[in-house]
Design a protein around this nucleic acid. Sequence first.
DNA 1: CTTGACGTGTGATTTTATAACATACATTTA
DNA 2: TAAATGTATGTTATAAAATCACACGTCAAG
Lengths: 173, 173
Amino acid sequence: MTVAKQRDTKPSAKTAFVTHDHAGCAAGTLHRAQEAAREKGVRMTPVRQRALEILLEEHRAMGAYEVLDRLAADGFGNQPPVAYRALEFLVENGLAHRVRRLNAFAACMRPGEDHAPVFLICRACGAVAEAGADEVRSALLDAAARHNFTVERATVEALGLCPRCVDGAEAVL
Amino acid sequence: MTVAKQRDTKPSAKTAFVTHDHAGCAAGTLHRAQEAAREKGVRMTPVRQRALEILLEEHRAMGAYEVLDRLAADGFGNQPPVAYRALEFLVENGLAHRVRRLNAFAACMRPGEDHAPVFLICRACGAVAEAGADEVRSALLDAAARHNFTVERATVEALGLCPRCVDGAEAVL
DNA sequence: CTTGACGTGTGATTTTATAACATACATTTA
DNA sequence: TAAATGTATGTTATAAAATCACACGTCAAG
């Protein structure tokens, strides 16, 4: 846990690809997530909160078993359902997202805001950014409408290289 | 196998959601796929072709193990790698697509044409349609560009209800 | 005919995800 | 506060999806 603030960077146009104060960014997002949960009337229990913290601390997509290991190390159960249930809760309540391409999960950077996220996944460093998606979403809805298809949920994921990895080969790896 | 044509519907705006002559549609697509493979200089071996036929016959997303069962029934190997290798080949060569939301695979309806497909997945009947995606794709590229992200591959999948399932509740289930 | 590349078959294993059931905690209701 | 109810957690087991590693076969180039 642990909310060590280091440089109180203002979270202006925060994206995973821009160097920023992870700890502060994570703390802020966690706070907003807690708010969102409270407003929604759902319970942010210890496992759930810890799972979210783990995702926020890493600021990348993590597999369920990876999260599970961390949870177990913190004294929670060490069986798959422990992680899957916490992660499912977070996803259901818009506090995290599932990244299908990676069979993984990532914290939502805009908890509470109704979101239709696009994920930008760097294949070099594994960073995952959540991009604004309004235009993508409306284009998708248009395309679906042309087929008389009713969209309920959408997954939009792009795999490629983030700005830090694309030029230098000094990639984070 | 089997090109029993039933109603020779003209494949004008063919989509999985419009009632049409599956057999004819499948046969035509298979033919185009074979052409595409030949032009590309890759080998369309028996397992590979049969795997594609299976996907085309069903005209829906199928899990690797489901395809495997059918292949085994036709005298091919019955171990997972048999199906995964054939499917991987098809995907690599643009003859099929992977539908991540379903952990499944579907035949490409436009083999050869460089495609950036959007999948419309009916949660009621399981049909999967490949929709035109140019606008979605450009919106996605724009969004990525704003983050200085270089897109290499994209996954766009919508889950919802197809026109046949959305109004009648007589849904296929 | 031998070599080497590619494809296929097979057994075993790894990784990802759920089912099923028991226990504990929390919130309401009386 | 005690009982009742719903919700969350722990744990065992298993299912489903995907890959590894290695043997064998085929076919075309040398």
